[in-house]
Structures are given as C-alpha cells and as structure tokens.
Simulated scan of single mutants.
Amino acid sequence: MPVDARTSAPLLGEPLAVEFMNTIWADRDGIHDALATPSEMQGWLQVGPQLPAIPDEDLRDWIATAPPREVEDTAARLRELRNAVRRLAAVQTADPRERAASATKDVDQALEVVNAAAASAPHWSHMTWRRNNAPDREVHTQAALGSTIPAVIAEQVIDLLTSDVRDGLRACLAPGCVLYFVRQHPRREWCSTACGNRARAARHYARHRTDPAT
C-alpha cells in the first residue's frame, strides 16, 4: 500500500473524494486519523490528490505561512467534513463494518455539512487563450484558502456521489480494514493487494478450522 512520510494516510490513487474518506484508516493498533492535528492535515494536503481550483504553489504558500489559528480551524472543518462524507459513503455502499462507522450518525446532518462546505467558498471559471496555445481554464475565488480547501473537496464529493462513479464505490471488507475504493474492474474486491492477501488468508484459515478432516 503506497505511503508517504508526510502523512500516515494510505495513498491508493483513488479519486480525491475517496482518498479524503480514507484519512481514517486502521491497522493492528487500532483506528487512526490522518487529519487529527494541523500538522498531519498539512502533510496530507501536500501529498494527497491535487485540489482542483487551487494551484500547487498557492497551497504550499498557505501551508508555510497561514496563521496557526486558521490552520487549526481548517483541520477541524476537514475532520467534520470527512466524517460526514464517510457517513454518506456508508449509506451508498451499505457498509456493514462497525469498526468503520462514522462519528457522524445522521444522514441529514452529513448532507448539511457537505452542502455548507461546498457553499463556503463560491468560485468561478475564467478562460484565457494565448496565441498558438489551446484555451486554458483558471478557477478563481474571493474566499480565504482555509475556506476554499474544504469547499473544493466537498464539490468533489458531490461530483462523486451524483455521478455514475458512485455505483462503483465499495467498502473494503477485508478483515480490520475501514477504507473505501472505487471498483473499476469487475473482479476487484479489495482496496489493495495487502487487503486481498489478508482476506484470502482469513478465508483459508476459516475453511481449515471448520473442516472435520483436518
């Protein structure tokens, strides 16, 4: 499972909305939150999927210079948004995993959080067309970057859950896993090879444990 030293979150190459869900992850030591502190949030923003409408240099500048209070507020907003998104993902996938249950219990509350985040930083497209080049699209906002980050992620969540991609969203049912993934191949069952190996080992153990001939 790909990892980066700047974040504890697994990096599976999933769409931004799904990678955001997966900032809650688990191992033998329990459940972990890759957005638990402002520094962890900043680490994930540096190595997670690119945020549409936010140039990389602007994001790097914000991480380096934003006032601590603004960073703390953004981390708190992202945790609230992430919990809401995981509640909606659980509904979409009929997720049976108690260990993966979101801290946000109510679906209406989850919808309210996502919609409020998306509306917190209105943005618009601006087209430029330089000679001998193809037209280029820039996205502008008048909101502070600390508000734009949750808004952009919320938009990606809405895009995912209102498109056909949502039909491929799956909860990984490997033992102990709490991650989600988009099933892009009919034979894919797990979020990663590691989870597939763990699930097959568990099945093998269960068969031999119940087989009276062994």
Rank of each mutant, 00 (worst) to 15 (best):
R203H: 02
S39A: 15
T128I: 12
V107E: 15
E70D: 09
M41Q: 13
A9P: 04
L145S: 05
T93S: 08
A103M: 14
Q92V: 14
P38C: 00
G176R: 12
E189G: 10
E189V: 09
R200H: 13
L169P: 04
A94M: 13
V71C: 03
A75M: 01
A116F: 06
E98R: 11
V182G: 05
D29A: 11
G30C: 07
T23V: 11
A154Y: 01
C177N: 12
A143Y: 08
A199P: 01
I153K: 08
C191Y: 02
N132Q: 09
A144W: 06
L78A: 03
D27K: 04
L45K: 10
D4S: 07
G30A: 07
F20A: 06
P49Y: 09
D136F: 05
S147G: 12
V165C: 06
R82G: 06
V85K: 05
T65R: 15
L81K: 05
L145P: 08
D164S: 14
D61Q: 15
A151L: 01
L11Y: 04
G168Q: 10
L161A: 04
H126G: 05
C191F: 02
R86M: 10
A121F: 03
A116Q: 14
R69K: 09
D27G: 07
A103E: 15
S163V: 07
V113H: 05
R82A: 09
R203V: 02
A101C: 11
A100I: 03
R130S: 09
H126E: 15
S102G: 09
P49L: 13
P55S: 00
V157I: 10
F20Q: 06
D159M: 07
Q109H: 06
N133E: 15
E138Y: 13
D27I: 04
D73A: 12
H126Y: 11
A100G: 10
V107D: 06
L11G: 00
L169F: 04
D95R: 02
V18F: 01
P38I: 00
V157K: 06
R6I: 07
S8H: 10
P52V: 03
Q50E: 15
I24R: 14
D56R: 14
A213W: 06
D106I: 07
P186F: 02
A101G: 07
G43E: 10
W62S: 02
